[in-house]
Design a protein around this nucleic acid. Structure first.
Lengths: 341, 341
DNA sequence: TTGAAAGCGCTACCAC
DNA sequence: GTGGTAGCGCTTTCAA
């Protein structure tokens, strides 16, 4: 293997008979350098394929031009969309993205944070794991003056900017759509009771029922723990076997909705005529399943962009940011599964 | 904001009345340092929460402990699985993963390569974009002695280790399954004619037909350009409208298979009784579509792990690697769409 | 077993 | 407009 040493500023300076500082200034087009010199140096650099050693630059400037991103799960339409948006925005501004995942484990999350904090990133964008309750490992960033943006799954009382889906509003709109379609007994397969997204969606669901004078029943609101297809199937079964079964099911997630849909299809319920089904997240499966699943699109890409631009702004200003919450709009995507009328 | 300066070796040395080099050696437990000193320094470091400035270490050692990964598209079940596997393996060995995507654009790919080459990574794992024909931007890594691993979509004549799906074998097995099920007129919606994966799958398809004395017809092998659902739909239509329509369709990808499936369902063809459909990649959609789509699972996570461990091995040895190809096994996942019998 | 010092490549300050 | 030089934090010779 060849280890062709890269040409350095020193080489340029020597070959051109100028000083290193002049070469540096010329390449960075500082004021106070003659156009002549600038041209000479730039031409030489071009010709000899000079690439500044960015490790050295980083070292000198004490920054990395890299931002870290930690998500609970990478193989997931929503999170990969967010990452995609983050990369896009970061690259636009000359930054790179270091990606890690916690696999929903607090220990992994802490390890990832530590590794990034050791000097590989200038700031952090994170969506916490299910296990994370408290954020001392995240606070370490702030303590060193490195900004953090939380998104989607957040720790409320950690003083960072937050980018989230407006879960209340989105759930409200989704349920209102069901109501508008003429469904009257609307159940909600919710998520974990202690997770903010679940709580907010549940509130939005309740408020929509309240505002439209529809009945709310505790036994119409089961709570998932895994948020899996199987749970969707099982809870749909449980709901439909109630003495008073619902005529629509609003699901915490498309995967759960898929399970519900499968139960309903398998057992001869007509969707959407007898039972309406609404998902959340608008994954690819919502589009391809039969019948097409109405869902709420969370604009993951946009969320990634927003979180990144917020972080870069703070980086530019040298701040760690205020405790402000930014809500990203959602879109209700209406498909067959709720088209009763 | 607070900018609590982090404690450095210098601080430790000063406070402990020893030299910087001793402090450094103690922390790294070099031989030739008294246990006493080691203990003293380590205790002090622990107590004052010393974290080595990894930018400085990187600079000094001229490496970053970071590897770069460039994929055509991040929001994609296969690629996010690969990334997930790569992160897992990299972290295990103390490395981090910098992720970028080309969006199937050669220019973006070149830009991403340049950015990483400038000093942010020690090596690269890449799956090239559809537009990429030639790899001078990748060769720049090798020229600097930085190893590269190609995976999935590769440039054959670039001297790097390669990790790929055994497309020939996988296609062969998939088609053989169709044959075993009793299908006799098997079409293949292929990909671009110049892309290696397409070519190999086509060859596997042909060989399976040949070995089982089934007819091969050019007009049964249309070529996609986008590899989209729409193309699947359109080509299925084209195939079924031929004077001699096929009784099974092997699709280059699940998305294409989905389009084909949709065409068939919409037009009253019974799947799998009248027409069998086989996908490739085994995305989530293959599992959830009705009827369930038989497909070939590519083991993305494993591929990411393998590519990463190969890269780290080279990094350890200081080599750029040989032109060796590693084929990752696939699994045939049989669902309803091909269960004729 | 320890210390002094060079130096990685670059930027930025201070002279001239 | 340009050059000299200090120094970022660390590792690693070389000397003692």
């Amino acid at each position: 293997m060849q280890d062709k040493r890269r040409i350095t500023l020193k080489d340029i300076a020597r070959d051109l008979g100028i000083s290193i500082s002049t070469a540096s200034r010329a390449l960075n087009s500082y004021s106070g350098i003659s156009d002549e010199t600038i041209k000479m140096v730039k031409d030489y650099a071009e010709k000899h394929n000079y690439v500044p050693n960015s490790i050295a630059v980083n070292f000198r400037k004490n920054k990395t031009l890299t931002i870290g991103m930690i998500v609970p799960e990478l193989v997931h339409h929503f999170f990969s969309s967010v990452i995609s948006g983050a990369i896009s925005e970061a690259n636009k501004q000359g930054y790179r993205l270091l990606v890690s995942q916690s696999d929903e484990s607090l220990n992994n999350e802490i390890r990832a944070c530590r590794s990034m904090l050791a000097g590989s990133v200038d700031g952090l964008i994170i969506s916490i794991s299910n296990e994370t309750q408290e954020g001392s490992h995240i606070r370490e960033f702030l303590d060193e003056g490195k900004p953090v943006i939380q998104f989607d799954k957040i720790i409320e009382n950690l003083k960072t900017p937050k980018v989230i889906t407006d879960d209340f509003e989105s759930a409200y709109i989704a349920v209102k759509h069901l109501i508008d379609q003429g469904y009257k007994k609307i159940a909600h397969i919710n998520g974990r009771k202690e997770v903010k997204n679940s709580i907010d969606r549940l509130q939005g669901y309740k408020q929509a029922l309240l505002d439209h004078r529809l009945e709310f029943r505790e036994d119409w609101v089961p709570h998932c723990t895994d948020i899996s297809e199987k749970e969707g199937f099982d809870y749909a079964q449980q709901l439909m076997n109630l003495p008073t079964p619902p005529d629509a099911i609003f699901c915490i997630t498309d995967l759960v909705a898929l399970g519900a849909l499968n139960f309903l299809k398998k057992n001869g319920y007509k969707v959407p005529q007898e039972v309406g089904v609404m998902g959340f997240s608008n994954w690819k499966i919502a589009e391809v399943v039969g019948p097409g699943l109405s869902s709420v699109d969370q604009h993951g890409f946009e969320m990634g962009e927003k979180a990144t631009s917020l972080l870069l702004e703070l980086l530019k200003e040298g701040l760690t940011g205020e405790n402000k919450t930014y809500k990203i709009d959602t879109d209700l995507v209406i498909r067959e599964s709720t088209q009763k009328s």
